[in-house]
Design a binder for these strands. Structure first.
Length: 300
DNA sequence: GAGGAATGAGAAA
DNA sequence: TTCTCCTTCCTCA
């Protein structure tokens, strides 16, 4: 379900948990049949570009994961839980045992264990992740991964040079609210950040790309990096400034205070009080904006 | 228990 | 522009 910030977060967490060691992997319900390619091999690093994850096992083998709209990970420590729900793939840390976990098993598959009850393992060291509902979970070569990254636009979370993306916006007749959703313009931005970045720049979603001022473009780009980096609070995206949120008790940011316009249609704009608007199917998704703060005449 | 919506994107028409 | 993939969670009855 996440936008780019959530993807980079998973990459960092999974790299910290698994990289540098052999990992176990399977697709216990037959939804992922290539787990053998990776099972028992050492994970070298976890790549993140836009909304794409790449678990790099070296030797020209990368596990590509794209969560899409419905995909999500669950993670935990302790013993691997029983299979439940619709599980695509799971990955867990492997502890090396002195004897094959399964007598007669091949070295690659049999000499690592996490929950086989052999007693060779400290349960506190076990970490696991489960993946369900992804758009893609498949084997990539280095070349295929490179083709993917070349197709994507600059990613605000990867310190990329934004000029390539700016150039595409400047020559496009499409609305900026549509361009922000296109991953070959900017990678990693999704429907929440589209709405919130446009609002924070007081930019109308309907202005053609070629008519958006450079100042606003740069402002949105400069905003996007830190905003996406700080983006997750309790697995939620928060984009409101503290001064624009109502004061409530405790340090927790309430879900209804997290956004300026996203899913706030019918509610008053936090800045001007005008009712926030919603339009269905704008670049295939629901668009939210304030018709006053983001009026087309506001463009610099 | 049904039905819809959700932080996505590729293919089809 | 419309369909289709796919899973979970929430609302409503």
């Amino acid at each position: 379900m996440p936008e780019g910030n959530g993807i980079h977060r998973w990459a960092a967490r999974h790299e910290a948990a698994f990289a540098g060691k052999p990992v176990r992997m399977d697709g216990p319900q037959g939804r992922f049949t290539d787990s053998d390619v990776f099972d028992g091999r050492k994970l070298e690093r976890v790549l993140a570009v836009g909304k794409h994850l790449g678990y790099d096992f070296g030797k020209d083998r990368i596990l590509h994961v794209h969560l899409g709209l419905q995909g999500d990970f669950t993670e935990g420590s302790g013993p691997l839980p029983a299979v439940r729900g619709a599980l695509r793939m799971r990955m867990w840390s492997a502890a090396k045992v002195k004897q094959p976990a399964v007598p007669g098993a091949s070295k690659r598959h049999g000499w690592y264990s996490s929950d086989d009850g052999t007693g060779h393992l400290d349960p506190e060291q076990v970490a696991w992740v489960e993946l369900r509902g992804p758009t893609d979970c498949s084997v990539y070569t280095n070349e295929k991964w490179q083709q993917l990254t070349e197709r994507l636009g600059p990613d605000p979370l990867n310190q990329d040079d934004p000029e390539r993306g700016f150039a595409k916006v400047r020559k496009s007749k499409k609305a900026i609210g549509q361009l922000l959703m296109e991953q070959d313009v900017f990678a990693g931005i999704g429907n929440i950040y589209r709405a919130e970045l446009l609002f924070r720049a007081r930019q109308s979603p309907f202005t053609a790309g070629k008519d958006v001022s450079d100042a606003v473009l740069r402002k949105m780009w400069k905003d996007a990096g830190p905003l996406m980096q700080a983006g997750m609070v309790d697995r939620r995206i928060v984009t409101t400034l503290a001064k624009d949120r109502p004061r409530r008790g405790g340090g927790v940011i309430a879900a209804e205070d997290a956004h300026y316009v996203y899913r706030r249609n019918g509610l008053p704009c936090r800045i001007c009080g005008t009712k926030v608007m919603k339009m269905e199917g704008f670049a295939g998704r629901n668009l939210f904006w304030c018709p006053v703060c983001q009026a087309e005449e506001n463009k610099a």
